[in-house]
Amino acid sequence: MNALDYVDDQLSSVLKCWRFAPGGRPGTVSLTGRQYFADGDGVRVLIRVAGEEALASDGGVMAARLTDAGVDIAGSTRAGAAWREILAQFELRELDGRIVGRRPLRQADQLASDIASAMLTADGLRWLALPERESKLTKQLYDFLRAEKFSFTRRPTISLPRGSKVKPTARVTTPKREVLIQTVAGGEQGIEHALSLVQRIDRASYTFDQRLVLLKGVPGEWPADHLDLLAEHTPVGFSARMEQVQAFLGKGKKLPSPVEGL
């Protein structure tokens, strides 16, 4: 595919030092350059034309990386204050978990560079990761695994193909397979973190039935749209239906759809 088939002429004329690729949505371009995170993952910026302006974002990657590292950038936390200072420094802002910015088209190159620089700077906040605290749901999962005599590892480190790492709640070893489990006690951010984690695990060659997201309560307590999206990437279990989780782990029995009957 020729770059000009999907790059707006106005962008291609001002973005000189970037490599172009389709951005996944009509009119959106993915930019990569020579910048990389410390773990080897490349820095990617999404950009598109809106009238006489260029709009750019990190696609939510930075917030997901920090969440995966256990860094809380919300509210009045130390990491949250540093996060907002970094965005202000580059004249950017946060919108729905994404670093975003807008500039006149002639400044598109600088805008893309500022997004990338803000991402690299914010990645340094990973050292502010809070000590992991177990939720009641996580404790319930560990107690369940012990009671059912499943062999498991708490907070295993899973290496991805390009060198980055994720730490799900547990790795369970069954007679036929390993299963990585992520618990979510509540909140949209928890769902998004779990979704990001299972999508990354897919890159580490863990098959669909080697993943499990355990949600608190019953399906009716969660937004159906979120359940539907999550179920596209992983089996979903519920803390009020642990007998289904036991059958999934012990017998390889398929979990029912989380939106069934909603």
Results as ranks from 00 to 15, higher is better:
Gly163Met: 10
Leu180His: 08
Trp83Gly: 12
Arg177Ser: 03
Gly190Trp: 00
Asp96Gln: 15
Phe152Asn: 00
Asp68Ala: 14
Leu212Tyr: 10
Val259Glu: 01
Ser12Trp: 02
Phe248Met: 03
Leu55Arg: 12
Arg126Leu: 01
Thr207Ala: 10
Pro104Arg: 10
Val29Lys: 06
Tyr142Ser: 08
Gly252Leu: 09
Ser205Gln: 15
Ala82Gln: 06
Phe20Arg: 04
Leu31Cys: 07
Phe144Leu: 11
Gln210Asn: 07
Ala240Met: 06
Ile115Trp: 13
Arg34Thr: 05
Trp83Arg: 03
Ala74Val: 11
Lys216Gln: 15
Ala231Leu: 01
Leu214Ile: 04
Gln182Gly: 08
Lys149Gly: 02
Gln199Glu: 11
Ile99Val: 14
Arg103Gln: 15
Ser135Gln: 11
Pro235Glu: 08
Val259Thr: 15
Ala50Lys: 15
Gly220Trp: 00
Asp109Met: 10
Ala129Trp: 06
Gly101Trp: 04
Pro175Arg: 12
Gly124His: 12
Ile201His: 11
Gly80His: 06
Met1His: 07
Leu137Glu: 00
Ala108Val: 09
Phe238Met: 01
Thr28Val: 15
Gln107Lys: 14
Ser151Gly: 12
Arg93Ser: 12
Gly60Ile: 04
Gly24Trp: 03
Glu132Ala: 01
Tyr142Gly: 00
Arg25Lys: 13
Ala247Glu: 11
Ser159Gln: 07
Ala21Phe: 04
Glu94Ile: 02
Asp109Tyr: 01
Thr153Glu: 13
Val245Thr: 03
Asp8Met: 04
Gly42Cys: 11
Leu46Trp: 03
Phe20Ser: 05
Leu214Cys: 03
Leu230Arg: 14
Tyr6Gln: 15
Ile191Phe: 10
Gly187Tyr: 00
Leu227Thr: 08
Gly190Thr: 02
Trp127Asn: 08
Arg93Met: 07
Gly80Tyr: 04
Leu11Thr: 10
Leu95Phe: 13
His193Pro: 02
Lys139Thr: 05
Ile191Thr: 08
Ala129Gln: 06
Val184Leu: 00
Ala79Ser: 15
Ser113Lys: 14
Ser30Gly: 05
Glu221Trp: 07
Leu111Thr: 07
Val259Arg: 08
Ala54Gly: 07
Arg211Met: 13
Glu91Gly: 14
Arg171Asp: 07
Trp222His: 03
Leu95Ser: 06
Leu4Tyr: 12
Thr183Pro: 05
Trp18Arg: 02
Glu91Thr: 14
Lys254Tyr: 06
